[in-house]
Simulated scan of single mutants.
Amino acid sequence: MPSDTQSVDRPEVRPDVRPSGLTLSLEPINATVSLRDQAYAKLRQAIAEADIYRSREEIRLDEKELTEALGVSRTPIREAMTLLEQEGFLRTVPRRGVYILRKTKREIVEMIHMWAALESMAARLATQRATDEEIAHLRHMFDNFRDSTPAEHIDEYSDANIAFHSAIVRLSKSEIIFETIKNIFVHVRAIRKMTIAQSDRASRSIVDHMRIIEALEKRDTELVERLVKQHSLDLAAFVEANCDFLD
């Protein structure tokens, strides 16, 4: 059994952890930083990248599989999971184990409303703080879809869509907004990923994105704030009307 301060010497591989059929992409960590902190960062990232709403089945984390995947003892894994539970990513069920926490439809809609408020403010600040080059980069995020529709490459477009919204927040150059929004991002990201292929939302979203970029390029503070907010509110309305699987 490895100690809590020394990592296990393992080959550099990316083992799959499969709690209840879900695959989390993880790799061993080293001891240059606190093992707890590294385990926390890797688990949080893996949860953020997982499709946690793809089915109604509860997603249980297997502690033994996590220790083997990360190459550390159970203590830093447990400490990391405690932090993630405090932040609302996990929940412990007595005598059953630790599960990834999924939100109800009402909670998701409220999170998207919060996202709309924060991202629209970030977009407003971006008109004042982002450079021309930084704004121009937003257009290049959709270069791969110029000669085809988003629906033809839905997985790639979904990733570009999520990256676009993250970029808007970062262009605000506001650490307060970034730190406030990052915990709800896990759930909003998962819902964006699930719903982007439904009801031709991908094609409509790219039109919205281009209008947002044009408003940023013109430094039109009021317009970009309104466009970004409405874009997310449209997602909230779609979830409210169509995502009964969340209940």
Rank of each mutant, 00 (worst) to 15 (best):
R10T: 12
R74Q: 07
H137Q: 13
E134T: 08
M210R: 13
M111Q: 11
T92W: 02
S158C: 10
A46D: 03
A122Q: 13
D143Y: 07
R95T: 03
I47P: 00
M114G: 13
S7L: 01
D37S: 11
V98T: 15
F89R: 14
I206S: 10
M141Q: 15
E27Y: 13
S166P: 00
D220L: 04
A46T: 04
I77F: 02
P15F: 04
I162W: 05
E85M: 12
R139Y: 06
I206G: 07
Q38L: 08
I184H: 10
L26E: 04
L125E: 13
V17E: 05
V13N: 07
K64M: 01
F178G: 05
R129L: 03
P15A: 06
S166H: 13
D147M: 10
H209K: 15
Q38R: 15
R170F: 06
E175L: 15
R146Q: 12
M81W: 00
V224G: 06
T104P: 01
G71T: 12
V228A: 12
F145W: 13
A122P: 05
R96S: 09
I154E: 09
D234F: 02
E222H: 13
E65Y: 09
A117H: 12
V8W: 09
H153A: 13
A50M: 03
M210E: 12
A123T: 08
M194P: 00
P2F: 06
V239N: 07
P19V: 08
P76H: 10
E87Q: 15
V224K: 13
F164S: 10
T195Q: 11
L118N: 12
R54F: 02
L26Q: 04
R129A: 08
S166W: 02
E49L: 14
I112M: 05
V93K: 14
R96P: 00
I212L: 04
A130M: 08
S20L: 01
G21E: 06
D147P: 00
A50D: 01
W115T: 11
R78I: 12
V239A: 04
N144P: 00
I176T: 15
F238A: 08
A241Q: 14
R10I: 12
L83D: 06
T180A: 14
Q230H: 09
L233D: 12
